[in-house]
Write a protein that binds this DNA or RNA. Structure first.
Length: 199
DNA sequence: TTCAGGATGTACT
DNA sequence: GTACATCCTGAAC
């Protein structure tokens, strides 16, 4: 079912971040339920030269270890004590770089995703909740029930319960580019246009 | 509709 | 002890 292969991630991180738009995340829960959503927003982080990256300058710690893994690995970490962020490792193994997923829209089992997010079904959501469903990295992980338990998973194997399908990428002209969010501390890197999204 | 403030735990000076 | 790739709530407009 056209799972993206390691070659897809084994490229320049900016190219991968752009190409991930429109792709479909598949998350299989322990009970077999298959959650699906389409990627609408991404950001690139490249340790080699990017002060916003956890592994800036090849900084290696227990947390950043996953960033040095082979391309196509899931890097998931805890942020602000209560939320998780999902990234896909890119480039050569040993080259710490990844794409952060910042936004998505549900394409299958949205009801279950709503349960994970708000503790109630799609029908019961307020307009405000519908509008702000998976439009943030923490929300996305909450909706797909992803935590550090899934850190380090190989995304190229369907058996791991987390993989990416080819989906339907947007026309290049529809892709918007801008500065990344929430990295004010990163000095010159705050202005890097490494965020990609589309409507 | 926007905005300030707080929640909360881990990583790492 | 401080910072953090965030999100929600409630108040003011």
């Amino acid at each position: 079912m056209d799972i993206l292969t390691r070659d897809f991630y084994h490229r320049d991180t900016l190219a991968v971040a752009r190409d991930l738009l429109g792709r479909e995340i598949v998350r299989v829960l322990p009970d077999g339920t298959e959650l699906r959503c389409r990627i609408t927003e991404t950001e690139a982080y490249i340790g080699r030269l990017d002060k916003a990256c956890h592994a800036y300058g090849y900084r290696r710690t227990p947390r950043t270890e996953t960033l040095f893994a082979p391309p196509g690995t899931a890097y998931i970490y805890l942020i602000y004590g209560m939320y998780h962020c999902l990234n896909f490792v890119t480039e050569e193994e040993g080259e710490p770089a990844a794409v952060l997923l910042r936004g998505a829209v549900p394409t299958a089992n949205g009801d279950r995703i709503a349960q994970n997010r708000f503790g109630r079904g799609l029908e019961a959501l307020t307009p405000y909740q519908r509008k702000n469903f998976l439009n943030g990295p923490g929300k996305l992980c909450r909706g797909l029930d992803l935590t550090r338990a899934q850190n380090g998973l190989d995304l190229t194997q369907s058996k791991n319960g987390l993989y990416i399908c080819a989906g339907q990428p947007p026309a290049p002209a529809c892709i918007q580019v801008g500065k990344r969010i929430g990295i004010d501390y990163a000095q010159e890197a705050v202005d890097f246009p490494w965020r990609f999204w589309y409507e």
